[in-house]
Computed example of a mutant assay.
Amino acid sequence: MKLFLVACVLALAGAAFAARVPRYTEIYDTIDVPQILSNRRLLVPYVLCVLDEGKCTPPGRELKSHIKEALETECAKCSPAQVKGTRLVIGHLINHEPDFWNKLVNKYDPNHQYTKKYEQELRKV
């Protein structure tokens, strides 16, 4: 019984701590990422935005403001939808848009310290 009580207290303490971790805004979590990835007319402006080579929409500005930190922390402040979307985008860029992927890596992770993991994990064989 004591062990159960201790486990409950630790679980509650962990939940309270997790609730304090600041998160990125979830306002854009409902964006249809697969639709953007399947349409270059939609995808290219986002990529150019985060490369500082084009205009940014509000979601693009939000994305750009967190890319470096999200890479460095393995998306610690991301919502589940953001983690899923990030993996979709990275996988798509690695496998279908290598030129864009390489430009993004050169800009945000020139030493390949963080992106190497994603490349190994998400590259289609």
Score class of each variant (00 low, 15 high):
87 R>I: 08
2 K>G: 12
102 N>V: 13
51 L>F: 07
96 H>E: 10
90 I>D: 08
102 N>C: 07
52 D>V: 06
105 V>C: 00
22 P>L: 03
68 K>G: 14
63 L>K: 10
39 N>M: 06
15 A>P: 03
81 A>R: 15
114 Y>T: 08
85 G>Q: 07
48 L>S: 12
106 N>F: 12
25 T>G: 13
49 C>T: 01
92 H>D: 07
74 E>M: 14
106 N>D: 15
118 Y>N: 08
106 N>P: 02
14 G>W: 01
24 Y>H: 12
83 V>W: 10
59 P>V: 03
28 Y>E: 09
97 E>D: 15
88 L>S: 04
122 L>P: 03
49 C>N: 09
93 L>E: 02
2 K>D: 13
74 E>V: 12
62 E>R: 11
55 K>W: 03
92 H>G: 09
117 K>Q: 06
40 R>E: 00
86 T>M: 14
59 P>F: 02
56 C>W: 04
116 K>I: 05
85 G>D: 03
74 E>R: 14
39 N>F: 10
25 T>A: 15
112 H>Q: 13
16 A>N: 04
46 Y>F: 15
81 A>W: 05
96 H>A: 11
45 P>F: 00
68 K>N: 10
19 A>D: 11
22 P>K: 06
67 I>T: 04
25 T>F: 12
98 P>G: 09
93 L>N: 06
25 T>M: 10
87 R>M: 07
122 L>N: 00
80 P>E: 11
58 P>Y: 01
29 D>E: 04
84 K>T: 11
36 I>V: 14
26 E>V: 13
41 R>N: 01
